[in-house]
Structure formats: structure tokens, C-alpha cells
């Protein structure tokens, strides 16, 4: 299978991974090899087979609507790379998105 550089770059953008040219090139061949391997799945006849999403059939258990203590603000922010006024701080969200 052939992956183009553009395709790999597009996936990296979706995944928010800043990859250098060399890294992109390595990944292009590695991904192609893995996708070739994975292509074997297409040999399997799966018409009408219900996709298995959980190993043991289970139904969603529901939680009662009760409140437990929240984390103290200082604990919530303890590991934040940047914080200000009780908030997580990030570089400005670009103007176009505001």
C-alpha cells in the first residue's frame, strides 16, 4: 500500500503531532507496512457479523444522581503547566475561533 506524504501529514495534523520531515518519511513507510499487514482482515467474510465492542456482554450500569465532594481547586490545578485566577492558562485561542 502506498501512503503519500500529504496523507501522513494530514493524519499528523488531525492527531496534533508536530512531525519533522524525516519523522514523516519514516512513518510513511512504517504505516504502509502495518496497513499492508492489517489488510489481511479484508479476507475475512464478516457479512452479518455484529461488531464486538465488549468482551463480555454487559449493559450499562447507571449511577444514582448523587454528589460527591469535588477536588479542591488547588488540587485540580496542582499539575497545570500554567494557571491563573483559578483557571488553567493556555496560549490565546486564535482570534478566528473566538
Amino acid at each position: 500500500m502506498v501512503l503519500t506524504r500529504e496523507e501522513v501529514a494530514e493524519i499528523a495534523q488531525l492527531a496534533r503531532l508536530a512531525l519533522g520531515d524525516a519523522e514523516l518519511e519514516v512513518l510513511r513507510t512504517e504505516l504502509a507496512a502495518i496497513l499492508d499487514h492489517v489488510a489481511a482482515l479484508q479476507e475475512v467474510e464478516t457479512t452479518g457479523v455484529e461488531p464486538m465492542t465488549h468482551a463480555v456482554p454487559t449493559m450499562l450500569r447507571l449511577r444514582p444522581d448523587t454528589v460527591a465532594a469535588s477536588l479542591p481547586v488547588e488540587v485540580a490545578l496542582a499539575d497545570a503547566p500554567a494557571a491563573k485566577d483559578g483557571c488553567f492558562e493556555v496560549p490565546a485561542i486564535i482570534k478566528a475561533a473566538t
Binding site: A12, L14, A15, L27, L41, Q42, V44, T46, E50, P51
Partner: peptide, 30 residues
Amino acid sequence: VKRRIMIGTYALRAGYYDAYYKKAQQVRAL
């Protein structure tokens, strides 16, 4: 980790879900 994120992102892209993730889950059922 980057490699797997890339494969996973590839497989979940719009239009690829059926051929990859869903197919794999069907094979998993088998």
C-alpha cells in the same frame, strides 16, 4: 506511541471507520 496514534487516527478517519475499526471488531467477534 506516535506510531500507534497515527495508525489509530488513520483508521478512525471519516470514511475509514467501516473498513478498519468496524471490520476489526467483526473479526474480533469471530
